[in-house]
Design a protein around this nucleic acid. Sequence first.
DNA 1: GTCGATAAAGTAACGTCGTTACGTAACCGC
DNA 2: GCGGTTACGTAACGACGTTACTTTATCGAC
Lengths: 216, 216
Amino acid sequence: MSPRRIDPNLTNALLEAAARLLAEEGAAGFTTRRLAAAVGTSTTAVYTHFGGMDNLVRTLVHKGFARLHQRMSTVRATADAVADVIALGYAYRANSLAHPQLYQVMFGSTALGGFALADGDRQHGRYTLEPLVDAVARANAQGRFRVGDPLLVAQNMWIALHGLVSLELGGYLIAPYGADICFEAQLRSLMVGAGDDHEATDASLARARRRRSPRV
Amino acid sequence: MSPRRIDPNLTNALLEAAARLLAEEGAAGFTTRRLAAAVGTSTTAVYTHFGGMDNLVRTLVHKGFARLHQRMSTVRATADAVADVIALGYAYRANSLAHPQLYQVMFGSTALGGFALADGDRQHGRYTLEPLVDAVARANAQGRFRVGDPLLVAQNMWIALHGLVSLELGGYLIAPYGADICFEAQLRSLMVGAGDDHEATDASLARARRRRSPRV
DNA sequence: GTCGATAAAGTAACGTCGTTACGTAACCGC
DNA sequence: GCGGTTACGTAACGACGTTACTTTATCGAC
């Protein structure tokens, strides 16, 4: 009376193939059959390992949030908290552009294989804000920002960043004001809107730009 | 040698049923077969009238942009250009919330029946900005804003608004800082970020709120 | 008013999709 | 090694978008 066990290698292979399939083929080519063919198994494996295509996608989304959180956490706190906020903005956009298809699934933009975000999934987006909330609070303490609740301000910055990335991925931001220009202008507006003055913002922006990780 | 002509009534019936189907059932229930059943015809009618499901959706998207443009154009220019900008923000959000499913299709969030936005479709989003660009330019002339190019600033406001509406429709903005609170806070930040001072922004915000159309 | 050409609209099929009942065979505890 | 449990493969089902093929409605020429 001892059952056969699930093969963890197959679970990982499915996840990796799914991530690759989504990144390379997009949501259109993301089908159960193609996924099974890619790992050399049958479509039923998706059900024994994940209980359905939507749960597999849910796992991908959770991993995406974890990676975003990790990427944001690599931004170290410095003496210039506004530069930290800007650096977090750079990190957010860089991570999104590195995984555009997954980003659109994570934020409800793209429906993927009947996958619909549950309330619990959306909450994963919230702890990602922690580093940003912290940086905003420090900028407040340093007298650069003049805001009430750092959480509210951080959330609004996130909203604006998401708007930019979302429209950039959708191809809506074109010449003469492409995504790069809009992004820089938006960062400036966000800092000034939070209470910083123009000169200090420009200095912090230059400082944050120097910190940017060289790889895109 | 005289052919049979297309029935315009059927074309309109398809469009209206498609809009209703999308609004009521969402993208999941939006299928060729259900659409045909709703208007009491067969699925081939979609092909003779539109050449495919994607072109029908494209027509819906174009109508959505036209309606958004019209809605934005109803915001009249007043002596308080900042209040006009805020009123345009209200109008944008109100229109989006009135047609949430269509909004997500218009801005590339939701893939609908194999429909993919073409470059030309995305350009429809640009002339929608015209009233906003005008209001920003007037706020600049009134000394309320201190911005370079009104188009760039208007575009950034649009980006932030889209981020808010997008996350609101996705259900990401919840207590304690729900969509309403974030929206107000974001409007303030945008005005201040564009050069206005806090007191003047609050006055314009109150003025714009009074102008809001009573219906949601 | 009748007829014929032309195309709109209906029928039915094809291939693909997600999902699932069923059969098989691999695994672990004894 | 044996037996029970279950992962996995096979094959099917219903629904999807799309399309050859058929039918039928329509309008101009006479």
